[in-house]
């Protein structure tokens, strides 16, 4: 039984290979970039705009709002990273309705790559905001004793990000595959709908957690505003 699209290899030369994960990712990238380019090619700046432009504006503005809600002061600075994370994971989940499609996020390699990106981005944004010393000092807070625990926390949360997304997406595809063999066709459709829902939720969780981590890294030395309850709840998922 094939657990991951990684095992679906089209071409290999030594270590380099072209597997299903990469191909599906490229497909998604193509769709996203081309779709965006198509829609934003003729953007209207006056009061009248096309429905597609309207949809994109709603999506982008909604993401900006969510990022701002996570505690980041300049959402336009982080929307490139966090927004792309959300859109990629969401589109990967949405496309599961297409027959023959396998979500690249169902591969631990992809989720690990995304989690590593977050793992790298968080200190980068933190250093950019607070400087290297200021950022590194956050690991020794509240006392130096906490340094190992902070480091473990950093690693474990990256691992949790990767495993959570992988688990949810892979399980969805897995359940579909199993159900197809044992149940009538109606039930897998319902499960697909459920899979779509969980996929959207995971996209939201992944990106909002990344936003929270970045927010924590960028304002660690600054007085904390009122704690946001929603991300705390979602982190449990």
């Amino acid at each position: 039984m094939r657990l991951s699209t990684d095992q679906f290899i089209f071409w290999q030369h030594g270590v380099c290979k072209l597997n299903g994960t990469i191909v599906f990712t490229w497909g998604l990238m193509l769709v996203m970039a081309a779709g965006s380019r198509l829609i934003t090619r003729r953007l209207s700046t006056d009061l009248k705009r096309s429905p597609w432009q309207n949809l994109l504006e709603i999506v982008v503005a909604g993401m900006e709002l969510q990022i701002a809600g996570a505690g980041l002061k300049h959402p336009e600075k982080y929307i490139g990273f966090l927004g792309t994370l959300f859109l990629f994971v969401a589109l990967a989940a949405l496309c599961t309705v297409i027959p023959g499609y396998e979500p690249p996020t169902g591969s631990l390699s992809t989720t690990a790559a995304l989690a590593l990106s977050v793992f790298v981005a968080v200190p980068l944004f933190g250093i950019e905001e607070q400087g290297l010393g200021g950022y590194l000092a956050t690991y020794a807070r509240p006392t130096i004793i906490m340094l190992p625990f902070n480091l473990i926390s950093e690693l474990s949360r990256t691992l949790a990000l990767a495993i959570r997304l992988f688990g949810n997406m892979m399980s969805g595809a897995m359940i579909m595959a199993i159900l197809l063999t044992i149940t009538p066709f109606i039930f897998p459709i319902l499960m697909t709908l459920l899979g779509l829902l969980t996929g959207m939720v995971q996209a939201y969780i992944f990106s909002i957690l990344a936003a929270v981590y970045i927010a924590a890294a960028t304002r660690a030395g600054k007085p904390k505003p009122a704690p946001a309850t929603a991300p705390a709840k979602l982190s449990a998922g």
Binding site: L3, S4, D6, V15, C16, K17, N19, T21, I22, T25, W26, M29, T84, L85, F88, P104, S107, L108, S109, T110, A112, A113, L114, L116, S117, F166
Partner: peptide, 15 residues
Amino acid sequence: LIDWFTVGAQALNFL
């Protein structure tokens, strides 16, 4: 489950 080449490629793809 993890193919490190794919991880790198995906990270690059993501960037």
